[in-house]
Design a protein around this nucleic acid. Sequence first.
DNA 1: GTCTATATCTCGATAGAC
DNA 2: GTCTATCGAGATATAGAC
Lengths: 196, 196
Amino acid sequence: MMKVNENQTEHIYDERREQIKRAALKLFAYRGITGTKMSMIADEAGISQGLTYRYFNSKEELFTELIQEAMDESQSAIKNIHHLPSTPTEQIRALTKIMLDESHKHYFLLVQQAQTSEGVPERTKQVLEQYSSKDTIDQLLPILIKGQQTGEFCAGDPFRLLLLYFSVISGLILQGVHSEANWLEEVDSLMKILMK
Amino acid sequence: MMKVNENQTEHIYDERREQIKRAALKLFAYRGITGTKMSMIADEAGISQGLTYRYFNSKEELFTELIQEAMDESQSAIKNIHHLPSTPTEQIRALTKIMLDESHKHYFLLVQQAQTSEGVPERTKQVLEQYSSKDTIDQLLPILIKGQQTGEFCAGDPFRLLLLYFSVISGLILQGVHSEANWLEEVDSLMKILMK
DNA sequence: GTCTATATCTCGATAGAC
DNA sequence: GTCTATCGAGATATAGAC
């Protein structure tokens, strides 16, 4: 008969954890780990600074957990692409749109921040390497090669082409942060990089 | 007869200033202003931490001076493009190569960092706005429009096309930091964004 | 569970010896 | 001119009251 209460307590606990993570994601994505203070995260989440440490042992742990989530998220986005039964062009277009989409932006920004700035803790680097951009691209290689065979995509080293393409997308997301630009409408312009 | 000594002293002073600036540029570009500690800059320059303050009043001043320099540098790169008497395609290609070039990379990265991360001091923001990316693109508009008239470039809003293109370049530079990729060979792939 | 208070540390900036 | 020592602000992380 203790069960219900226990579950409820656990539920509240998880909720608060998520609340802190949402606040932290937003801040980390825009300001990086060194530029984000724990007090800012607490403010954004509407709780006291000290309480944050009841849910996360350190700033580093919080940051790393978010990176892990972001990686999982992008992995599953790529997995889903393969299940869409359409042309390579449409598959890449769909993935591009997901990446540029408002709801995924923070995650991609966070990873971008972590990969480019050097003030990242050792523990976090390990998570980043675990799913390297190389693996991500390896998964997309079959799609690109098929597109080259059908004549939709241009010739050239498929790996290098994909690396270029996704570097471009990542860069655009970062750039768009301030300019308020919405590159979603420019997907076709971007895809010209891959097209014949 | 004091003149010679005075000049020499001044020369040594300027040399050291440049030495600090070189060290700071490298660090700021990769780690941002909040991720870079004055002690790191001093280490990189091979001097003591305290000495840095004999040459710059504050970290902010050092950062802002570098931003100013980076802006001047990119402005003059764009000015020079107009004096090259060649086709629009060649002009844009030349500018792209300059931006991706090793020697300019740090400057472009620094500006990128400053424009995207939020922990930037107020004074620096003013310098950034002084030469906004809008002005930069405005200067290149005639080239793009000419290219559209000659049929080299694709149709579409010239401003939006250029903004997209230079966002792509900036993003690539950032992305390339760690992957050691050299996108110089990919200039033609990138320019497909603009081409017919 | 949550907040306030505080110990501890890190960093920017200054002071003073050489 | 340069270094070492140190101050003071602000941040992370902990402790203790409610």
